[in-house]
Design a protein around this nucleic acid. Structure first.
Lengths: 117, 117
DNA sequence: TGCGTACTTGCGTCATTGTGCAAGTATTGG
DNA sequence: CCAATACTTGCACAATGACGCAAGTACGCA
């Protein structure tokens, strides 16, 4: 049994699922471009869905580690975890390059994928 | 109306939705670690689902631009588009860093997100 | 030409998820 | 203390998607 590679560690379905919905991406882009923490009501103007839906989307993005939440009184503000997200994406890019052929490190046995997965 | 930023261009729901499923990620990791083009039957041994499911997953990943497909006789081989995928991920990381505060470029109006989204 | 291999596609099923509405909770201001 | 603001949560519903099975297609080989 082969130990888990950086690639396996970074390929998290939950993260991508969180990013795999148009309205969620719109909300994320909105907050990202604001460059500051945004309240739920504020960011809700980005997309034309019910406020409750926005609330759920933002909570989902926070659960996935994409956003940070901070509560101040009755206002809930979400902000992008720029550093973490960027690091994850770059780490993934690096892991992929590390697998790329040319700088061969020999993939799996030629006989099929029996060895490598 | 604000023109579309690199961030908007790179935040593609279709790509993330393709990556947002465990079996698809397993298949992707398998092919990536092999470092070569893998046939459908080969890579099907990675996860315990029907071959038809694997076929559909690989086709979906190809549609999302993650894999390249090449047919040789009756064998269909998929390989990872390392360069494109890594470039997309790094571009996204860069776009995020570009939005990050500190190196302020002034987000949107303080009044809310009316201006920026 | 017929058979086996290597997928792909159609179809039905079941689970998940995105959505709006309505009701609930928490906090602030008068 | 009451009302308004700012969310959150429960619920029902529709749409999507993952899955297995069975049938279909495409290709190579004897």
């Amino acid at each position: 049994m082969r130990r888990s590679t950086p690639l396996d560690r970074l390929l998290d379905p939950a993260l991508f699922r969180a990013l795999g919905e148009r309205n969620r991406l719109t909300l994320l882009a909105c907050i990202a471009k604001c460059g500051r923490a945004c309240s739920v009501g504020e960011v809700a103007e980005c997309c034309s869905v019910d406020l409750s839906v926005v609330s759920r989307h933002l909570a989902a993005l926070a659960r996935a580690g994409v956003l940070d939440v901070e509560k101040a009184g009755r206002v809930v503000r979400y902000k992008v975890r720029y550093a973490q997200l960027a690091a994850t994406l770059r780490g993934l890019a690096d892991a992929l390059d590390g697998c790329s052929p040319g700088r061969d490190e020999a993939g799996c046995d030629e006989g099929g994928c029996r060895g490598c997965c």
